[in-house]
């Protein structure tokens, strides 16, 4: 199993109060799976995704990634995980506004210690993959929303991580552009990537092979997607 989550809890501390955001989560996700996470607003989808992406830590429970107990890792090791094993795609892209598309895509490789030449090569490849080879020297503000998200995807892909995590990747895009992005995810999945996508839209979730439904911090249902035929 690529991901194994056992009895996971997450509470947010707000002053005196502990607000439970996730309770009793048990999930297993295999390599090359394509999973959609759905649920009402405030149900804890992003909270779960942040834990999966090693951006946040659970209050209790176990998270095994590729056989490694993530809760045992120190900050540097978590950074390395984020850098090499996980590609994170955000709803609002989170590109650095002063860097060009190419520089944004190169950034994970900078922290991986790759040399300039290697960075360049790989970043260009990643941009080609998302169909943006002709926009490399554009700044994020000079790109459309869909293009920005493609740059963000290229950045997530560039260090060839085992898994792509996308928190509402189409949330800020119109539906046509959203469909294009999903088609790209489809292709990436076929090439062997593991993909987890949070979405509100059934249309988007339909691309996935499995849907996990979260409600009030608990897993409400976890079902294979019958509309898809593999």
């Amino acid at each position: 199993m690529l991901i194994e989550i056992k009895d996971l809890y997450k509470n947010y501390v707000m002053g005196e109060l502990e607000v439970p955001a996730l309770m009793d989560i048990n999930v297993q996700i295999a390599k090359n799976e394509y999973v959609a996470i759905m649920g009402p607003s405030g149900s804890g989808k992003s909270t779960l995704m942040n834990i999966l992406g090693c951006l946040d830590t659970p209050t209790a429970g176990q998270y095994m990634f590729n056989g490694v107990d993530v809760s045992q890792l120190d900050d540097d090791a978590l950074s390395a995980m984020r850098n090499r094993e996980i590609g994170f795609i955000f709803q609002n892209f989170n590109l650095l506004p002063k860097l060009t598309a190419l520089q944004n895509v190169e950034l994970p490789l900078v922290y991986a210690g790759a040399n300039k030449h290697e960075r360049h090569e790989k970043a260009i490849q990643a941009l080609q993959k998302v169909g943006l080879a002709d926009r490399m020297s554009h700044k994020p503000t000079e790109l459309s929303g869909g293009q920005r998200q493609r740059v963000a995807i290229a950045r997530a892909l560039v260090s060839k991580p085992g898994i792509l995590l996308a928190d509402e990747p189409t949330g800020a895009l119109d539906s046509k552009t959203g469909v294009e992005i999903m088609a790209l995810f489809d292709e990436l999945q076929r090439e062997g990537n593991t993909i987890i996508v949070i979405t509100h839209e059934q249309e988007i979730a339909d691309y996935a092979h499995r849907t996990i439904f979260i409600k009030d911090g608990r897993i409400h249902s976890d079902t294979p997607n019958k509309k898809r035929n593999f």
Binding site: L55, R82, R84, F88, N94, P108, Y111
Partner: peptide, 8 residues
């Protein structure tokens, strides 16, 4: 953002 993509 830098931390999210792997900066230590």
């Amino acid at each position: 953002i830098r931390r999210a993509i792997g900066a230590r």
